[in-house]
């Protein structure tokens, strides 16, 4: 670290210590003035966020971490920046507005530094430090924002999967899961969990997995189905797979997938009849075959 940077840093540290409230205040004002930059957050929320970040910046700068590493490595500052971007990512603020919100801190800082009577060279050195700090914060915030959105997408995916795999009770002691769409590993795990929990809750004796809505059955789908059947059996219940269309039966044979030991039926109605037999119940009337 050279001398001019060291002195610029100590000037900035002093400004931050003395004018913490004023800087935070000004930063909030800048964000409020540019509607979108505030991310739709209320003034008091922005204020709270600004206070936390400016305080963290002040304490980070007062420490002995080098300027280029202070944002990444000062825990309080790092967390303040990631909190800000995470909050905006969740609120659906645009990535540009999020970066600009962080970058507008530069304006607030420089405005307060301008009030110090510094010579040109001094001002330039301080501006350089401010730039490096805030740019690092901007980069971190963007990265966090992207990761935050990815997290949201993953969560929504999971919620969507939960919604698309309802377990319904068809009859006393008989449950069914109508599967619609592709059955990948993540989805089959959700199906398995939901089905097993429902079996326990309803004390069900038979679970029917209906694959009418599954477009293709390949080796991995078959494997997922087998695993589900095995888990159902470990719980002490029986499993019937229904909705095996001729095309799918053909694929199963061609791929040499062994589904022996698993009860399969063409239609959900056939499977229900089988399930009633397994539970020692009699259907009130025999289902009509087309």
């Amino acid at each position: 670290m050279n001398r001019s940077e060291a002195s610029a840093r100590s000037i900035l540290t002093g400004v931050l210590e003395r004018q913490q409230t004023a800087i935070a205040e000004r930063w909030v004002q800048v964000q409020m003035e540019r509607g979108e930059v505030g991310g739709g957050l209320a003034e008091d929320e922005l204020r709270e966020e600004a206070d936390a970040l400016v305080a963290a910046l002040s304490s980070g700068l007062a420490g002995d971490l080098p300027v280029e590493r202070v944002v990444a490595q000062h825990r309080q500052l790092h967390d303040a920046v990631t909190d800000l971007s995470m909050r905006r990512a969740r609120a659906g603020t645009s990535p540009t507005a999020t970066s600009l919100a962080v970058l507008s801190l530069k304006e607030a800082l420089l405005a307060c530094v301008a009030e110090e009577s510094l010579d040109t060279r001094g001002s330039l050195a301080v501006a350089r430090v401010v730039n490096r700090l805030v740019d690092a914060a901007g980069a971190l915030s963007f990265e966090t924002y992207v990761e935050g959105r990815e997290e949201i997408i993953r969560r929504q995916n999971r919620q969507l999967m939960e919604l698309s795999t309802p377990v319904v009770q068809l009859w006393r002691e008989i449950l069914a899961v109508p599967l619609i769409g592709n059955l990948d590993t993540a989805r089959s795990q959700v199906v398995m969990e939901n089905l097993l929990e429902a079996i326990q809750e309803h004390e069900a004796a038979v679970a029917i997995i209906d694959i009418t809505g599954v477009p293709t059955v390949d080796t991995s789908v078959a494997q997922h189905l087998m695993q589900t059947v095995k888990a159902v059996r470990l719980m002490g219940a029986d499993c019937v797979i229904s909705g095996i269309r001729p095309g799918i039966a053909q694929t199963i044979v061609q791929l040499g997938i062994d589904l022996s030991g698993i009860q399969t039926r063409a239609t959900l109605a056939d499977a229900l009849e089988t399930a009633m037999g397994l539970t020692g119940q009699r259907a009130p009337y025999a289902p009509e075959h087309p």
């Binding site: 097993l196 079996i199 326990q200 095995k230 888990a231 470990l234 002490g236």
Partner: peptide, 14 residues
């Protein structure tokens, strides 16, 4: 063997 819990059944199968 009676009353296996769902998480145990899933883990065993995996």
């Amino acid at each position: 063997v009676a009353g296996m819990r769902p998480p145990v059944a899933i883990t065993l199968v995996e």
